[in-house]
Computed example of a mutant assay.
Amino acid sequence: MLHKNDDNNARASASMTSTELAREALPQKLKRKIKRSLGPWGIFIEGFLRNPVMVGSIVPSSRFTINRMLKPVDWANCKLFVEYGPGVGTFCQPVLDRLPRDGMLIVIDTNPLFIEYLRKNISDSRFKAVLGSAADVEEIVKAHGFEKADYVLSGLPFSTLPEGVGPAIAAATHRVIRKGGAFLVYQFTPRARDFMARHFKRIDNGMEAINVPPCFLYWGWKDEDEG
């Protein structure tokens, strides 16, 4: 049987627990409020801070970079477009705006935060967001009913990826792209070209200054006469 003092102590203990819980919850509420106020930027920054090695920049690509990167694509003959490291979807809507009605856009990211955000915010039936590694692109493409991809876009930071991952992604990408297709890469260092050159004989180069930071642009073509 509880005495009066025991009852008062229990209430005080419960009160302290509630107060402590409120204090614990406050930072989380503040984080959510800040994230909501920042919108996609908040998600992008959080994703970068969680795993900077897999995210090329803390700032999404500019519209100038997007337009230049996508300009060489033959959209009339594009049935499958693949993107590595989509982040919060900076390229997704521009790609979907250009993609034929019977086409598909598959984006691949190892960050569940980005994949969850994209699945919630892009309702286009042509869009598929996959949680996984770009090195597994062949299996992912086949799982969605395709043998080859027409184009693959990547903003992954090849120079900072774990050892062996960059070469594996470049090799798998070359295998999965159809003849006549291309590997589209935007990077902040020119090292990405070295990974591409091992597989793509013809690489067009560019640079976009109106971007933070300015970036190198590459289009690696898989020509029709390749073996």
Rank of each mutant, 00 (worst) to 15 (best):
R202L: 14
F188M: 14
D194A: 15
R191C: 05
D204M: 14
K201S: 11
G206N: 13
T189P: 05
R191K: 05
A209Q: 11
G227T: 09
R202I: 10
R191W: 10
A209S: 06
Y186V: 05
N211S: 03
R198K: 13
K222F: 00
K222H: 02
Q187T: 04
M207Q: 07
W219Y: 05
M196H: 08
R198Q: 14
F188K: 08
A197Y: 04
K201M: 09
E208V: 00
F216H: 14
N205L: 15
F200M: 07
M196A: 07
Q187I: 01
A192N: 12
D223Y: 06
N211C: 01
P190Q: 03
A197Q: 07
A197V: 02
D194R: 15
Y186D: 13
W219Q: 01
R193K: 13
E226I: 04
F200T: 07
A192R: 06
E224C: 08
F216K: 08
T189D: 08
P214M: 01
I203E: 00
M207V: 14
R191A: 07
P214A: 02
C215I: 02
G206S: 11
D204V: 14
E224N: 10
I203S: 00
K222N: 02
A209M: 13
W221T: 12
E208L: 00
R202N: 10
P213H: 11
Q187V: 01
K222W: 01
G220I: 01
Q187F: 03
H199I: 05
G220S: 02
D194E: 15
M196D: 08
A197P: 01
R198E: 12
D225A: 11
D204H: 14
E208A: 00
P213G: 07
R191F: 07
R193D: 04
G227C: 10
E226A: 09
Q187S: 06
Y186S: 10
Q187A: 13
E224L: 06
F200L: 10
F195T: 09
D225F: 14
M196R: 05
A192V: 03
D204W: 12
K222Q: 03
K201R: 14
L217A: 04
H199F: 10
E224A: 15
G206A: 07
G206P: 07
F188C: 13
E226F: 03
F216D: 09
D223W: 09
E208G: 00
D204E: 15
F216G: 06
E226Q: 09
I210Q: 04
M196Q: 14
E226K: 05
M207N: 12
G220W: 03
W219F: 04
D223E: 11
F200A: 08
Y186L: 11
P213D: 12
L217K: 06
A209W: 15
F195Q: 12
M196N: 08
A209L: 15
Y186Q: 09
Q187M: 06
M207E: 13
F195N: 10
A192E: 05
A209K: 12
K201Y: 10
A192M: 07
T189V: 11
F216M: 03
V212K: 12
V212A: 10
D223G: 04
K222D: 02
H199C: 03
P213K: 12
V212W: 14
F216Q: 04
Y186M: 13
